[in-house]
Design a protein around this nucleic acid. Structure first.
Lengths: 230, 230
DNA sequence: CAGTGGTCTAGACCACGAT
DNA sequence: TCGTGGTCTAGACCACTGG
């Protein structure tokens, strides 16, 4: 068996013994244990990261992945409710709120000319203190005046409904796998280049007008997508 | 800027110039161009693989990823129809059909005792000659006698319906990201350890009895999942 | 056969984290 | 300050592909 596979096997055993979220031995400790080199040790670690079994925090070390959050993109369930039902302690942190010009894709999605001003809200969502998702929300400033004065840590849907009387009625999501970009990784305290799930979501009001445009980056090992059809 | 980022930038430009599916320069050519080492060149290539922009075939080289297939897991659309609508030439290849004992998860899903015999069908699906998905299908031998004599390259749903008069009416899918296992990678002519999308699907008849249990491994850069909700 | 990627060694220097 | 991972070098041998 290849050396990196032996190392994988060893770490797999460690994971079984350890609690979720616990730190693994350092790369240099593993290297000495197997009389190997860092390249080979990291080969094993990266594979297990891709498998979603472990994750790393920038320069802090490697950790055992907790259980995945099961999420149904079709059912519009509140994040807090969903997380609590599955035994997690959820949290949302507002990272930034800006207004001004947005990226071209946003103008295209809203079918607006480039004079339109957009809110850009960045939020990080965590499960049991572990950042698992970075969210970018775009919506029109003239539709949501004074948005920066609102409490932005809760459900945006509820906020839209209660403070602006705007209901979300349908949505379209596009999901694909990519690598965490540098700027998003930094906000999540993770490493750029790790696999992640990117979800682009458009949400509409009953009149089919686009209300908000959403980009979510999920730590790939933190989520499982569940879909039913009849 | 970091060296591997410069190499990424260079390859990104190459991709813009090249046709989909075209081969990239070899690792050693890139290494010489940047007076670098293979480790660094491969760092750039692996990141772009995770981004879904390029892919590799075992010991053959690195290639530019073609466009993604857009797929809606809720709408039960035929693979051939879907692929053709999006301008691909689809193909299915039967890799193996066995019968006997299955894995424990299969027995659990079917709620059967271990005396039950299952068919195990392996198929590889391609788009424009590029293998993009490996499928494992499990179903009960006594429900589908003589399955091995049937044409297994087409739609299984149609086969169940026409040859066995069994309709599929609802399904449950679980989607997550993982690494391509060694044995699946081999069948796809790809490399173990690359990110992939694993879809576990259970399909039921109108009486809510489980008809087949399906595991799909998608080359992650080959697919985009689209979901709508109302 | 030459060329490709797959695996692996034995180092190095750096930025940043924990303390 | 020391330990961590992040980046990088300059090689090596091997299995397999393709001509």
């Amino acid at each position: 068996m290849l050396l990196y596979q032996q190392i994988k096997q060893y770490i797999t055993k460690l994971i079984d013994d350890k609690q979720q979220g616990v730190k693994l031995p350092s790369e240099r400790q593993l290297l000495e244990k197997f009389n190997s080199s860092r390249i080979t040790v990291r080969e094993a670690l990266f594979r297990m990261e891709t498998e979603g079994l472990i994750y790393r925090q920038n320069r802090k070390g490697w950790f055992v992945s907790p259980a995945r959050l099961r999420w149904n993109p079709v059912k519009k369930v509140n994040y807090y409710q969903l997380a609590k039902e599955q035994g997690f302690t959820p949290n949302t942190q507002l990272v930034a709120i800006n207004h001004g010009k947005a990226a071209t894709v946003v103008y295209q999605a809203f079918e607006q000319t480039s004079s339109e001003i957009f809110w850009e809200v960045y939020r990080v969502r965590s499960l049991d203190e572990r950042p698992v998702m970075l969210e970018e929300i775009y919506c029109q400033q003239r539709v949501f005046p004074q948005l920066h004065d609102k409490a932005l840590e809760g459900s945006i849907t509820t906020l839209f409904s209660q403070d602006y009387n705007i209901a979300i009625c349908s949505e379209q999501s596009s999901i694909h796998v990519t690598a965490l970009p540098d700027d998003k990784a930094e906000l999540l305290n993770l490493n750029a280049g790790s696999p992640c799930i990117k979800i682009i979501r458009k949400r509409f009001c009953p009149q089919q007008r686009l209300i908000d445009y959403n980009i979510e980056y999920w730590v790939h090992g933190a989520i499982e997508i569940v879909v039913e059809s009849y």
